[in-house]
């Protein structure tokens, strides 16, 4: 059938009990939480027992204290950086999706755009950031947004093109037997088939966008941005402060990732009961 391995037998009417998903999900969250906690404990104990100097690796407790102590400033810096990441993510993802739609529609464009995309997409940020600073100004948000958008654009483009082409031949034949116009094939079949691919790319892009924004700030940017903070704190040998900034950024990246995962569940209600990974 349409999902060969995933449907072992008739389970008609076996709608999962309400809340079953929640239980499963919290069970799913337990493992990474335990792992994270375990790492923190080992880290703390190791630093104390081995007498590692804080310059090399501060203990988690010291980092936590720094976060709490400096919270307003950290939150402000994270927002300055996060703003660039968010804007760049939205522009890059939206542009990548639209370009993917266009590329899948016109074969010559697809053949041209994907290879070029791969080349541009593999440009290192260390090269693009100074260029965009030159173009948009180092003290403009748009130079950071451009770096992020470029990093996000190509995974979304490539996955959109792959996703739109992923609809099974039999489904395409079915619509052909109805003499369905191209637009209907796109909306009724290709876009729904592409969504898992697109969201896969968005998850990756969410993490990339924060990294790209921070790195872009290393090449000049607002004095109250997280990237600038990390740079100056490192220069002043305040490694605990630098670590605290990284923690705040991670929290932002996690939130963005979570928002994408949430959007994914809303956009694809038919995949909500996660029966394993079906991509």
């Amino acid at each position: 059938m349409t999902t060969p391995a995933a449907t072992p037998a008739a389970v008609a009417g076996a709608a999962p009990a309400p809340g079953a998903g929640l239980v499963r999900r919290s069970a799913g969250a337990a493992a990474p939480l335990a792992l994270g906690l375990g790492v923190l404990v080992v880290w703390e104990v190791a630093v104390r027992a081995l007498g590692i100097r804080p310059i090399l690796l501060p203990p988690p407790s010291a980092i936590a204290a720094a976060v709490v102590q400096d919270l307003p400033r950290l939150a402000g810096a994270t927002w300055v950086t996060g703003r660039s990441a968010l804007l760049g993510f939205a522009i890059g993802a939206g542009g990548g999706f639209l370009a993917g739609l266009a590329a899948s529609r016109w074969r010559p464009l697809r053949e041209a755009v994907v290879p070029v995309g791969v080349v541009l997409g593999s440009l290192p940020i260390v090269a693009t950031a100074p260029i965009f600073n030159l173009w948009f100004g180092a003290l403009s948000i748009w130079s950071k947004v451009a770096v992020v958008a470029l990093v996000v654009f190509f995974p979304v483009l490539v996955n959109t093109v792959a996703g739109l082409a992923s609809a099974p031949a039999s489904s395409q034949e079915l619509l052909r037997s109805y003499a369905a116009p191209g637009r209907t094939v796109l909306t009724a079949l290709q876009i729904p088939s592409a969504l898992p691919f697109v969201f896969g790319a968005l998850r990756v892009a969410a993490a990339l966008s924060v990294i790209a924004a921070v790195v872009a700030e290393f090449f000049g940017g607002f004095r109250d941005s997280a990237g600038f903070f990390i740079k100056t704190l490192m220069a002043n040998a305040d490694y605990t402060g630098a670590w605290a900034t990284v923690v705040a950024l991670s929290a932002f990246g996690l939130a963005l990732f979570g928002a994408v995962a949430l959007a994914e569940r809303v956009a694809m209600p038919w995949r909500r009961d996660d029966r394993g990974v079906r991509t």
Binding site: T2, T3, E173, L174, S177, P192, W270, R271
Partner: peptide, 20 residues
């Protein structure tokens, strides 16, 4: 005939859309 939808077709796989 296809463009007039004169026939219905059933394939070996049910070919249902999971999102519907």
């Amino acid at each position: 005939a296809r463009e007039r939808r004169d026939y219905g077709m059933v394939f070996q796989a049910a070919t249902l859309f999971d999102w519907r």
